[in-house]
């Protein structure tokens, strides 16, 4: 059976087009979830796409977290369902405290759209299980507020418990620290994406959903999208997703 994956649509979402395309390429059935609705229409995974939800005039993601659909998303996450937020979706999840940390203005204070190399940290999570090998993945970033920040205790907990899923890589394959050329926004510890303590909610700034076909310059993002789709199928069949737990991160994490 084709996995049904929800795409949350806020007024101002714009990478929903990319997400729709990527889920189709990955063999899933995309279901658009309107921001005013609390009905998740029986989806077995949720993707929160990029864009500027509600215009993001105040701070990225800060209004979206109060929308009706986010209440439903929080319940879905609480029940163990897989949720992936990309770019603005990551910002929304961070504002909703469904994943630890915050996304600050880029260190360069300018919007940045370029290809980055993304190093997956673990290959056994709901969001990386189909990635295949621990090699740098090429895909674009496109954001003005993507500088990952968390306090020391949260960072320590993330590092200890394997909460960092993806880091930016330098051209030589090493992790890109805040000042390195491979780090587009000054993110601490090169962090490009994290998961929550239970492991079923993740956010990342780069756009795997825009890098799913060779004609677009890279299909390195397909493994991440496919991971979500496989996890959705598993969740639909068993009510749980492997690679997740109920472990709680120590420190200030969600």
């Amino acid at each position: 059976m084709t996995a049904r994956v929800g795409i949350v649509l806020f007024p101002g979402s714009n990478r929903d087009i990319d997400a729709l395309n990527a889920l189709r390429v990955a063999g899933a059935e995309p279901v658009v979830l309107w921001h005013e609705s609390v009905d998740l229409e029986g989806v077995s995974a949720i993707l929160i796409p990029g864009g500027f939800a509600y215009g993001d005039y105040l701070r990225a993601g800060v209004i979206a977290r109060f929308s009706p659909v986010m209440r439903a998303v929080a319940s879905f996450a609480e029940a163990g369902g897989p949720v992936l937020g990309i770019c603005n979706g990551f910002q929304v999840l961070a504002e909703a405290r469904l994943v630890p940390g915050a996304l600050l203005r880029n260190r360069g204070l300018r919007f940045v759209c370029r290809e980055v190399a993304l190093l997956p940290e673990h290959l056994d999570t709901p969001f990386t299980r189909e990635v295949g090998a621990r090699r740098p993945l090429r895909m674009p970033v496109a954001h003005g507020e993507g500088c990952y920040y968390a306090d020391d205790a949260t960072l320590d907990a993330l590092e200890r418990d394997g909460g960092v899923l993806w880091r930016y890589a330098n051209p030589d394959g090493s992790v890109a620290g805040p000042d390195d050329p491979g780090n587009p926004n000054g993110s601490l510890c090169g962090i490009a994406g994290v998961r929550n303590a239970a492991g079923n909610v993740a956010g990342l700034m780069p756009h795997p959903e825009t890098a799913v076909e060779a004609i677009l310059g890279s299909d390195d993002g397909l493994g991440i999208i496919r991971s979500l789709v496989v996890s959705a199928a598993e969740y639909a069949a068993t009510g749980a997703v492997s690679g997740t737990s109920t472990r709680t991160l120590a420190g200030g994490a969600a």
């Binding site: 300018r110 759209c113 370029r114 496109a142 959903e209 004609i215 677009l216 310059g217």
Partner: peptide, 27 residues
Amino acid sequence: VFEQYDHNVQANTVEGPGRGAAVLRIK
């Protein structure tokens, strides 16, 4: 300059800015 513009949203950009004409696939 063009790094400050989102040049691949909508997942159509085959050739973006910087190297001559832009190419956009039609899904």
